[in-house]
Amino acid sequence: MTMIIVGSLVVGMLCGYFLLPGGLPFLSSITDGALALLLFTVGYDLAQGGDLRQKIKDLPRIALAVPVLVILGSLLGSLVGTLFIDLPLGEGVLVGAGLGWYSLSAVIIAQSYDVTLGAVALLTNVFREVLAILLIPIIARKLGYLPAIAPGGATTMDVTLPIISQSTDSQTTIVAFYSGTVLTALIPFLVPLIIKLLQGF
């Protein structure tokens, strides 16, 4: 499975770079269609998993806190990471607050803070999504199912949800969908809030 994942992504990147530098006119419709079909199969699988209500009840209470832990971990992680590169601490944290949703965080940062930092946010969150796709199966095996939700950040409600669904179980898939939805709803507030804080200092 990991080979299929890595292979499709890499072949796509190479095709995009060498063969289709202008992109494809309906590319975003293809992406959306494939994503919708994929999420349909995730929903279909969830329904096969028996009594969902019981499974949600059986989850540890801490599962509710997963989105909060993901935010705190991302902000502190980016703070530590910024110590190793040439970037003001607060700006590193701002980039980390994108939580993998590159299109949104990069646009907000480029428009209301700084264009170059917007480009850093774009790349960082693209990398986060790609690395998440590669790491989720490994983390699920080595550290357990719930930690495998963390790398995806906000993308665990869409792009990385199928990977989580295939690497873990239906209980974890529900937590991932819940966490991704909460984070996706929070980013439009979190990123501008950190920009406000940065501009206040």
């Binding site: 832990l69 902000l75 910024t82 980390g96 850093v120 960082t124 969150n125 983390i139 963390a150």
Partner: peptide, 22 residues
């Protein structure tokens, strides 16, 4: 390079927090 460091550190931080929470 910067983006790679930041993406790895955000992933590591979030995985660590969820793991320690568990």
């Amino acid at each position: 390079g910067k983006a790679l460091v930041l993406s790895i550190s955000t992933i590591a931080g979030s995985v660590f927090f969820v793991w320690i929470g568990m």
